[in-house]
Design a protein around this nucleic acid. Structure first.
Lengths: 210, 210
DNA sequence: TAGATTGTTAATCGATTAACAATC
DNA sequence: TAGATTGTTAATCGATTAACAATC
């Protein structure tokens, strides 16, 4: 796995999908696959598949194709799924709790280590073995445990302050469900936005223009 | 609002963000804004802002800029937020219930009209005034009410069958939280994927490569 | 009118696709 | 060896940025 030149974000965003398809192929007992066959199944071009994989080095073999399991492992390694960063959740409302219960964090490179909320009614709860902690304990917790990233499940009006705090506590990555633009103020921090209403508006557009 | 030529998906995906920023400007009492000022706030180029808006017609005025409220309304109209498509939810597990409770569907062009699950323990529940219905009633409901779209919050192994059914019941759009590629089999249907674990893997990649 | 800022065309950049020599 | 399929270079396509004339 070479990793010298900068990989474009378009390529990175396709990797999880490759990873998923290769997982399904593995389950179905497929040992090898060609770029052509994979491209048909995924609705891409064979060229793109080869270009994508070759960003990271030659995983294939001429005349044979790609070894499914090996390729999947390589992509997993590139995505960083083999070691886990400590992750905290801030905001344990409906959405936060569902995310905490629903996601298999361990299989996507993170370990959910703590959950915080400032609502006393929620700090009673235990979610997946984690007791929801009072937000007042956030600073102390971060100082002691140095988590790397945070899931942000809070209303947008509270987001600016919470983000400022978290950054000052050493958080360097955000999985952001809040409608607040972290990158505008902190361009160097890693951010993955999940803007649910934006996504649904896009569906609205699609459906209302044929 | 002209709508003849095909608008690229890159432009469409930026519209909800414009809509959100313009909403904030409106709240703060700003009446007009230039492409230059808006581009700085949003981290885009002034050129791109003008190009984007001009896909749909001239909303601005030379020497003045754009009227915030009018521009926001135009974008809302383009996204189709003024009328609401009937939407059903299939799958009322943790994630589905949180989405149902959390989302303001009315403000993004949809009306959540019914929720279905095949788990008898869930069909007791009432969520936002909607009684969770048994999946056995799905066909009858669709025949009678002709909903346009479905939120899919089911495990991926059940997805192929459920999607087949829903398509046969006349569903033409999916907000898809399930890890199943609807477009592969049904390229003509409207799909917005929310692949949460893909998103988190992307964050993992970002954080582990500096 | 002069200044500001759009709408739009042209130039650049990047990503995707095509082609093909290398090679298993 | 012959066939298949990669890795990689070149061509195309599309999206972003720059430039500037039009005009409020």
């Amino acid at each position: 796995m070479k990793d010298n030149s900068v990989i474009s974000i378009s390529v990175i965003k396709r990797l999880p999908r490759y990873y998923r398809f290769l997982g399904e192929l593995m389950k179905s007992g497929t040992l090898r696959i060609s770029s052509g066959e994979l491209s048909i199944r995924m609705g891409l071009t064979a060229s793109q598949v080869r270009q994508d994989f070759n960003c990271f080095g030659g995983f294939g073999q001429q005349g044979y194709g790609y070894n499914v399991q090996q390729l999947r492992e390589e992509i997993g390694a590139i995505l960083g799924l083999n070691d886990r960063l400590e992750l905290i959740m801030v905001g344990a409302g409906n959405l936060g709790r569902a995310i905490a219960l629903h996601m298999d964090f361990d299989s996507v490179g993170f370990r959910l280590a703590a959950i915080f909320d400032n609502d006393k009614a929620l700090t009673q709860l235990t979610i997946r073995g984690l007791k929801v902690m009072d937000s007042a304990l956030l600073a102390g917790y971060c100082k002691e445990n140095r988590p790397a990233a945070a899931v942000l499940c809070i209303p947008p009006d509270k987001a600016p302050e919470v983000v400022d705090d978290l950054i000052s506590y050493g958080i360097r990555g955000f999985w952001n469900f809040s409608h607040y633009d972290i990158h505008t103020k902190y361009p160097d921090v890693c951010v993955e936005n999940v803007h649910l209403s934006d996504s649904l508006m896009t569906l609205s557009y699609q459906m209302k223009h044929n």
